[in-house]
Design a binder for these strands. Structure first.
Length: 425
RNA sequence: GGAGAGGUGGCAGAGUGGCCGAUUGCACCGGUCUUGAAAACCGGCGUGGGGUCAAACCUACCGUGGGUUCAAAUCCCACCCUCUCCGCCA
């Protein structure tokens, strides 16, 4: 959520930003509702003051004065409850308008849609094949690594069983990512796979809407998490941190559940777009100065790149354009790994993303920090980034490391955990 | 799942209808004393909203949401959470 005061003071900038992001919102309504709310607050405060005054006199009042004061108090109570219900209605409307306004955007972010992302740089080397590379579905079939049929029988389309060495590969990726993050000073967590709807909303998900990506659990206020971003960010909900302990860097392992409503037929082959996968996520809380959050953002991207470099995979780093940012992000970098079996002749597929959400999530989650020299508190900045998203990383490994004989070489850094150098029949 | 206890400011911990936004202790900040430090003493010290050039000031907040009352931390209801014991269980 964007700061109310900021929206009202920078109306044109906010409107321009929404336009660049392709979001239609009613900034005018926010300003109008804010003014309306303020009037009601002032009126309510005055009535409450009068009521306090009247009821404060009662204990000392004479027998004659008392009934009058009680009568006055009754009247004031009615007026107050009238003003309060108006205020509540206005605030509800205000909040829902305000919630639709996306975060502001880093000035260097390219303007446009999905195709306007800026290519920042490339890493690793594209593999060369002297045979026609297969896609991960075919490779997995030959090596008996994924059971899609069992997945559908048991849970439906979009679910799968990893099997045999694919299981070891997934565990190896998790171990590798966690080891790397521990050495980078992250605090490691395994997190709940469910969270309260209020936490999901704080991070920026709509758990129960028509177009939700979220599985919710009937008769509870719990939903399955779509990413550990939700549980890691939510971990410090309503907390006030000391600015000297920032930045805090968390890493969390969780399962991720997504309904993928409305995306059927779009890159759904294999395990590219699935309803459940395992992911190691980074999350950082920084002080509210964009210098620190920008620096941590670069650090998160650096770590993502180092992970894919260590895996020996070719990738490109893109700076996501305004229209493709999503509400909470101020800036977002995606790492796209080369997937030789994808599409016709290979293509890049998104494997990580790293967002700086500035104070947008912190405001709704109410995560603040305090500095000794400043009165009051400020909202922290939050950032998140993927260390390893297992399903897609497995696609990249299988397709890039496939051999003419159908076997798959295990990336060197994963061998200690996979326990072999080559996955073969 | 059953029984009990409890949730109050950074922490500990009083407060059972009006004098309570809240006693006290610790922590923290400033000062006196001291060569310096500690101790002692004095003073300060919550968060949000409104308001103001800035203050003053007003208002809200004692787990959350409702209710009773002229008046609620305090009484009533629901929910959430924590702890102890019992049962069940990987």
């Amino acid at each position: 959520m964007l700061d109310l005061q900021f929206i009202c003071d920078h109306r044109e900038e906010v409107e321009q930003n929404c336009k660049a992001r392709g979001v239609t919102v009613n900034v005018e309504a926010v300003v109008r509702l804010r003014d309306e709310r303020n009037k009601l607050i002032v009126a309510g405060d005055e009535l409450r003051r009068q009521q306090k005054e009247a009821s404060g006199k009662i204990p000392k009042a004479s027998a004659e004065e008392r009934p009058q004061l009680i009568e006055l108090g009754k009247q004031l109570r009615e007026q107050i409850s009238e003003v309060e219900s108006q205020q509540k209605a206005v605030e509800e409307e205000l909040r829902s308008e305000q919630a639709q306004i996306p975060n502001m955007t880093h000035p260097d972010v390219p303007v446009g849609g999905e195709d306007d992302a800026a290519e920042v740089r490339f890493g690793g080397k594209k593999p060369e094949f002297d045979f026609k590379p297969l896609d991960h579905v075919e490779i997995a079939a030959k090596l008996d690594l994924i059971d899609f049929e069992a997945g559908s029988r048991v849970a439906g389309h979009g679910f799968y069983y990893l099997k045999n060495d694919a299981v070891m590969l997934e565990m190896a990726l998790v171990q590798f990512a966690l080891s790397k993050l521990r050495s980078e000073g992250f605090t490691l967590y395994t997190t709940p796979d469910v969270a309260r709807d209020s936490v999901l909303e704080g991070i920026g998900f709509n758990p129960r809407g028509d177009e939700t990506q979220i599985y919710s659990i009937a008769n509870t206020d719990l939903s399955l998490v779509a990413t550990a971003e939700i549980t890691l960010g939510g971990a410090l909900k309503d907390q006030t941190l000391n600015i000297s302990e920032l930045p805090l860097k968390f890493a969390g392992l969780s399962h991720c559940f997504r309904t993928e409503a409305g995306s059927h037929g779009r890159s759904t082959r294999g395990i590219y777009r699935v309803h459940q996968f395992t992911k190691v996520e980074m999350f950082a809380f920084t002080s509210p100065d964009s210098g620190q959050s920008d620096a941590v953002h670069q650090e998160i991207v650096r770590i993502e790149e180092e992970i894919f470099q260590a895996l020996g995979l070719h990738y490109r780093l893109i700076d996501t354009a305004t229209g493709d940012l999503g509400g909470p992000a101020y800036r977002k970098y995606d790492l796209e790994a080369w997937m030789p079996g994808r599409g016709d002749g290979g293509s890049y597929g998104e494997v990580t993303s790293a967002s700086n959400c500035t104070d947008y999530q912190a405001r709704r989650l109410n995560i603040r920090c305090k500095s000794p020299d400043k009165k009051g508190t400020q909202y922290v900045h939050t950032l998140n980034g993927t260390a390893i998203s297992c399903a897609r990383a497995i696609i990249a490994i299988l397709e890039n490391y496939q051999q003419a004989d159908g076997s798959v070489v295990v990336p060197e850094v994963l061998r200690p955990w996979v326990g072999k150098d080559v996955i073969a029949v």
